[in-house]
Design a protein around this nucleic acid. Structure first.
Lengths: 177, 177
DNA sequence: AGATGCATGTAAATCGTTACATGATTCA
DNA sequence: TGAATCATGTAACGATTTACATGCATCT
């Protein structure tokens, strides 16, 4: 369950509430997935139960009480353990390739349509990424190295989508012949 | 649930048993995920319930009875519908990038170690893909176009991993300085 | 004798998504 | 007045993984 470590990571940056974590997770590049309420609040409960974070209630005047989570030493330790061990290859799931695999019974026009759709989806993703990067992606940037790494991570996703788009266009032009 | 359509796709190629489908799914490039027993046998039951396939028992002498599934016209229709509609961007989940995001507190050596591990994982994936391609990946190849598409699909995965490896090496050499 | 292949499936647990539920505040 | 933001969470469902369960045949 990566989400727990993603949350621990953000908490190793600074103390945050569930609500803030949700925003960070859904707005950061590469963390988007499973940034739903349920997982965040329940993961925080588990992290607390496992004694990796502490929480503190901070009442406010006009808004609901905030429950601020902070990482503790066990949490920092668990995070470091996870970061160093447990390296796995990326998991890539492209439904579209399965669709393409069984698209031979389509007419030329139908196939072009399919490819066009995929290109559009990819172009949209790329635009959103670029836009997000343009107006400054979240980046703790506590050191030059950290800033560099976070920039590289955005770049990674961008390049992945660009490669996919390029590949699709190649097929498109080949199928067009 | 893509797995159902992946199965329908293979059945649109030829009639197959659950056991054969399992082997195909786990050995084909891009279908590997969720090639576990449970999903295949239960999906086949659902496809049968939804009237997209028919099944026939074929007793054998020395081996257990085979349950051979065949696609029917509703199945072929459902497959075509799915292939043409419903185009979605790829889903990419790279745990490693989350690890990297929170790796700034590691020493230079520790970080190099991490990167080295990831490179090794990627190199292994690439080798396995190449090996699979070398000794002839599954490919219905009923038409020249279908052969071409299936080759492109293998190429897609290969290129994705190669891009990832290249990106990692870039970081590695930058971090080394 | 032990591993692998043939062939079927079930059960339990975890992970992930979507929707539900509440309620004040602020901005257009 | 309606939408968005602040802030907490729960419930239900669906997808996915891992492990369990059986038994004969064939190969090393």
């Amino acid at each position: 369950m990566d989400i727990k470590y993603a949350l621990l990571g953000f908490l190793s940056w600074k103390s945050l509430t569930g609500y803030e974590l949700k925003k960070l997770v859904t707005n950061s590049i590469g963390f988007e997935w499973s940034g739903n309420n349920n997982q965040i609040y329940t993961s925080l409960v588990e992290l607390h139960r496992d004694n990796l974070v502490i929480s503190e209630l901070k009442p406010q005047e006009r808004y609901p009480t905030r429950k601020v989570y902070s990482i503790n030493n066990s949490g920092r330790h668990a995070l470091k353990e996870w970061v160093m061990g447990n390296v796995e290859p990326p998991m890539i799931r492209k439904s579209f390739l399965i669709q393409l695999a069984w698209s031979d019974h389509l007419s030329k026009n139908e196939m072009e349509d399919m490819l066009k759709h995929y290109e559009l989806e990819l172009e949209t993703q790329i635009m959103m990424l670029r836009e997000q990067m343009r107006r400054g992606v979240i980046n703790p940037a506590r050191t030059a190295r950290e800033r560099y790494l976070w920039e590289k991570i955005s770049e990674n996703y961008l390049r992945s989508y660009e490669l996919e788009l390029q590949w699709t266009r190649e097929i498109h032009s080949e199928v067009d012949k």
